[in-house]
Write a protein that binds this DNA or RNA. Sequence first.
DNA 1: ATGGTAGGAAGCCTA
Length: 273
Amino acid sequence: MSKLRIVTWNINSVRLRLPLLTELVRALEPDVLCLQETKCPDALFPHEGVAALGFGHRAVRGMKGYNGTAILSRIPFTARGDDPDWCAKGDCRHLGVDLDVPGGLELHDFYVPAGGDIPDPALNPKFAHKLDFVAEAAAWNRARGPSRRSVLVGDLNIAPLEHDVWSHRQLLKIVSHTPVEVEALTAWQQAGHWYDALRHFVPPSEKLYTWWSYRARDWEAADRGRRLDHVWVSHDLAPALTGWTVLKAARGWPQASDHVPVMIELDLSKMAA
DNA sequence: ATGGTAGGAAGCCTA
């Protein structure tokens, strides 16, 4: 196989939205699908329904009610099994696998804490947790050295660029776009030598969103979105980037998630040495 | 400046 399609989606309950995975597969034809917020204990994961969509290889890390990640794949992989216990909370926010493609490919699926409403770590433990998590992730990448043959995806819950939000000015004090978060995320990206795969295709001067709040009367008319979901690749994979989709239409599906699926396509034969 | 909606678990948390 020459082209590899990787999709990331904050599904906001894998059991509730299992039927929407059929639509996603039809629209994006992913080889590998990384989910966040599965909200499903491992023993209750809908393996049968997912296998019926062609994902014969699955890694799940869930818990009751909150969080949870899953990697579903048509391609065999090995769970890395060396994932840290982030912030010593045991809260199911990361999975790492080695994909069985020629030469190998490391893939990480993250769900970064949302961080609550008050952007002050002294007043808001959830915001402190978010900053700690991102700092730990940066340290983890730093210790591992520059990434190679690697992809990192997920709901990182931070919109770093001015045009990753509908109004830079109005969101400067809103959690997900505060300078302290943006600085932390940028430090993480630099620590791992990660390359922003979506901004490879869409210039930073153009608006790009992957999330629209449930709380808007009309999400599409208001279009007050944010780019919270990301695909980062190691620099050797930059020349291999051949396609992308932010599936905005998914926000209009019945019983939609507030996040939409994001796809990137890689031609591994075009990888840099 | 405020409050708006959604999912899960089980009478409130998280997003």
